[in-house]
Design a protein around this nucleic acid. Structure first.
Length: 297
DNA sequence: GGGACGCTGTCTGTTACATCA
DNA sequence: AGTGATGTAACAGACAGCGTC
């Protein structure tokens, strides 16, 4: 399987050298090699940067070369790519738009036709079937792309070209990879955001359910005559901030400890500075169990 | 100054293919 | 071996920003 892909990749790029050992290609003269070419990597330091271990190089070379150049147009140079193909819309709008000069359109059309013809003829030659082969980036290529994506999630044309050259890809392929990578990143982030919002929603629903229940309990208590009997008018209630005991209204202090209010309820006295206490104020009691609202017994 | 136009790069949705379970 | 699911390279169209006229 891998060998098949290897052969295919090489044959697509360099049909005339299909049977050649790919590892012999480093002997190719750079001046005659097609640029950008993965084989140029053998002549550049970046190749050793990518695959420093010589023992692993053999296999890595195979896997590296396996995935590259599937869609490459052998006759197109860097400059031509820069001029006409590296930008997605430079090709697309050039072909579909009606405002570019005829010369440019013809140029782009020619390039595209050449590309398709090459791809077609090679593919046909390869398997006699239809369908262009889809490029699969190698792990090493992906790693390098990921690395540069971490640094910059967009690239300028020069960076695309340089990275493409380094990896044996066209600037257009680098560009497409970055586009897709940005899309994947955004999708992931959207999923994370969705999950977060979902949890927020669940929490709020639960909180709402709890509050509704509390409201029901409060309503039930409000209707209870016994509760009314124990109630002290809120305006007369005070509580001690330190011990949180409910204090008596001013007049009750005069009655002394253990006094009974006019309704016959036991009064709790405090000498600390009283603070207003509103039983119906929502915030202090919201997160307490309903039993906390009951007067001490 | 500002509107029309063209170019370029990016985003977004889709398609087609490769791979895996 | 066939098949559906999944991942992803590549494509197509829309749009925004910018420069020029």
């Amino acid at each position: 399987m891998e060998n098949q892909d290897l052969g295919l990749s090489l044959s697509l790029s360099f049909p005339e050298k299909r049977t050649a050992n790919p590892l012999q290609i480093n002997s190719l003269d750079s001046s005659t090699s097609i640029s950008p070419s993965p084989f140029n990597l053998f002549q550049k330091n970046c190749w050793t940067d990518l695959f420093p271990s010589s023992d692993q190089n053999l296999e890595k070379c195979r896997t590296f070369l396996k995935g590259i150049d599937v869609n490459r147009v052998p006759t197109i140079t860097d400059d031509e790519e820069e001029a006409g193909i590296s930008s997605p819309n430079s090709t697309i709008s050039g072909l579909s738009g009606n405002k570019r000069s005829e010369r440019e359109i013809n140029c782009c059309e020619e390039l595209e036709i050449i590309e398709r013809e090459c791809s077609r003829s090679i593919t046909d030659e390869e398997d006699g079937e239809t369908s262009r082969k889809k490029l699969r980036l190698t792990k090493d290529q992906s790693a390098v792309l990921e690395e540069s994506f971490k640094k910059h999630n967009t690239l300028n044309p020069k960076q695309k070209k340089a990275l493409g050259k380094r990896l044996g890809l066209t600037p257009r392929q680098v560009e497409v990879w970055f586009q897709n990578r940005r899309a994947r990143t955004k999708l992931k982030q959207t999923e994370v955001d969705c999950e977060f919002l979902k949890r927020c929603c669940e929490n709020l629903t639960e909180e709402n359910r709890r509050l509704q229940k509390e409201v029901q309990e409060l309503k039930a208590l409000k209707l209870s005559p016994q509760f009314y009997m124990q109630m002290i008018p809120p305006t007369t209630l005070t509580t001690c901030p330190s011990c949180e005991r409910i204090a008596s209204p001013p007049y009750s202090s005069a009655l002394g400890p253990g006094s009974v209010d006019p309704r016959g309820n036991q009064m709790i006295l405090t000498r600390h500075g009283p603070m207003p206490f509103n039983l119906w104020a929502a915030s202090p009691v919201l997160h307490r169990p309903i039993s906390a609202l009951h007067p001490r017994s």
